[in-house]
Simulated scan of single mutants.
Amino acid sequence: MKIDGGCHCGAIAYEAEIDPDMVSICHCTDCQTLSGTAFRVVIFASEENFRLTRGTPKAYVKTAESGNRRVQAFCAECGSPIYATSADDGPKSYGIRVGTARQRADLKPRRQIWHRSAAPWLPGIEGLATKEMG
């Protein structure tokens, strides 16, 4: 499925080819803190299937408890998070923030990851499949 989107102010835009069956709710504590909410919804695109069409995001490198380094890319103007990818060499996968996609209404989450960090008060999502990562 082809998607396109960008930041809130329009300074950053992208397009990507994604598999809509891979939309995930991530409950990791990094996503909670970086999104400012209980979880983040992401869809993954390989490097060859993701392209910026306008602007250059600002990047912040976050080192996880595991030691993995992740580039967090966001708009320097409005602060919208756009994607995360690995900071290391090798093929990249882009974790696109579903809220930035124009097609977000069609991108229903199919799984939850890092579920052990989920806020205990979250109602209504327990029926989704869960998978522990890491």
Rank of each mutant, 00 (worst) to 15 (best):
V42C: 11
V42R: 04
I125C: 10
A118E: 10
L34K: 13
E15F: 01
A45N: 02
A11F: 03
L128A: 09
R97S: 05
T100P: 06
I12Q: 04
R70M: 14
K108Y: 00
G124T: 08
A73F: 04
K62E: 14
P120V: 06
I18W: 02
V71Y: 02
C28H: 04
T130G: 13
I43R: 02
K62A: 12
T29K: 14
G36E: 10
A64T: 12
C28P: 06
G79C: 09
G10F: 10
R104Y: 07
D106A: 15
D30V: 08
P123T: 13
I82S: 02
T130K: 14
R51V: 11
E65H: 11
A76H: 10
S46Q: 12
N68W: 07
T85W: 03
D21L: 11
R69Q: 15
I18R: 03
E77M: 07
P91I: 05
A73E: 06
K2P: 00
G6C: 05
Y83L: 07
C9M: 10
T37D: 07
Q112V: 01
A87N: 14
Y94C: 06
G127S: 15
Q32I: 02
I12W: 04
I82M: 15
S24P: 00
K2R: 15
R51F: 00
W114P: 01
G5H: 04
Y94Q: 07
R116K: 13
P123A: 12
A11K: 12
E77F: 02
L128R: 06
S80F: 06
C7N: 04
P120H: 12
A16I: 05
S80N: 07
V41Y: 01
L34S: 12
G6N: 05
G36F: 08
A119D: 11
S35A: 15
W121Q: 09
Y94I: 05
R102I: 03
H115R: 05
A105G: 01
T56H: 09
L34P: 00
Q72T: 13
C78P: 05
F74P: 01
T85Y: 07
W121M: 06
K92W: 06
L107Y: 05
A11M: 07
T37Q: 10
C26L: 02
A119C: 09
E17Q: 12
K92T: 04
K58L: 08
K92Q: 15
G6R: 01
F74A: 08
S93N: 13
D106K: 12
T85F: 04
S86I: 00
G10E: 10
V42G: 08
K2V: 05
R40I: 06
K108A: 13
S117R: 01
K2C: 00
E132V: 07
G90W: 07
I82F: 05
Y94N: 06
G79N: 10
A87G: 14
I125E: 07
Y14K: 08
A119Y: 11
A118Q: 15
E48Y: 00
C31N: 02
S93V: 14
S66N: 13
C28Q: 04
Q112E: 10
A13V: 02
V98Q: 03
A118F: 03
A84E: 10
Y94W: 09
D106W: 02
A118D: 04
G90R: 07
V98F: 03
I3E: 00
D89C: 00
I125N: 11
I25E: 01
D19R: 11
M22L: 15
D19C: 10
G10I: 12
R111S: 06
C26D: 03
P109E: 03
